[in-house]
């Protein structure tokens, strides 16, 4: 699996980890990782520490995740993006939309 998710209901937390290539082929898996989670005020964490490549569809997927999070009044944090990935996130001005922790 290129996308793995880890839900802990007790902590109201879901951790999604994406492997090296974050592109269109993952969209189904990525959506499945969070779509079942419909609890309100959930904390979403997207771990990009292992991700090396990202295309625009990845950004689109993150935006869809953001929409999902907003719909259920949760929070979204992107964790440990690499330099390249962080650059892409900066160009997309994602730091204005969500928290990026390095």
């Amino acid at each position: 699996m290129s996308v793995s998710s880890n839900i802990s209901q007790e902590d109201n937390k879901i951790n999604i980890v994406v492997n090296e290539r974050f592109d269109f082929s993952l969209h189904q898996q990525f959506r499945d990782a969070y779509s079942q989670c419909t609890t309100k005020k959930f904390n979403y964490a997207l771990d990009l520490s292992q991700t090396e490549y990202m295309d625009s569809s990845a950004l689109g997927m993150i935006l869809l995740l953001k929409d999902h999070v907003d719909m259920y009044e949760g929070t979204l944090v992107i964790l440990n993006p690499s330099d390249t990935v962080n650059k892409i996130l900066t160009i997309a001005q994602f730091h204005r939309l969500m928290t990026i922790e390095r």
């Binding site: 969209h27 569809s57 950004l59 689109g60 935006l63 869809l64 160009i91 997309a92």
Partner: peptide
């Protein structure tokens, strides 16, 4: 920047369509 925004939005909408 606007161009990037357009690309990302297109991606997002496409994914939604998908």
């Amino acid at each position: 920047e606007g161009f990037v925004k357009v690309i990302i939005n297109t991606s997002k909408q496409s994914l939604q369509t998908l």
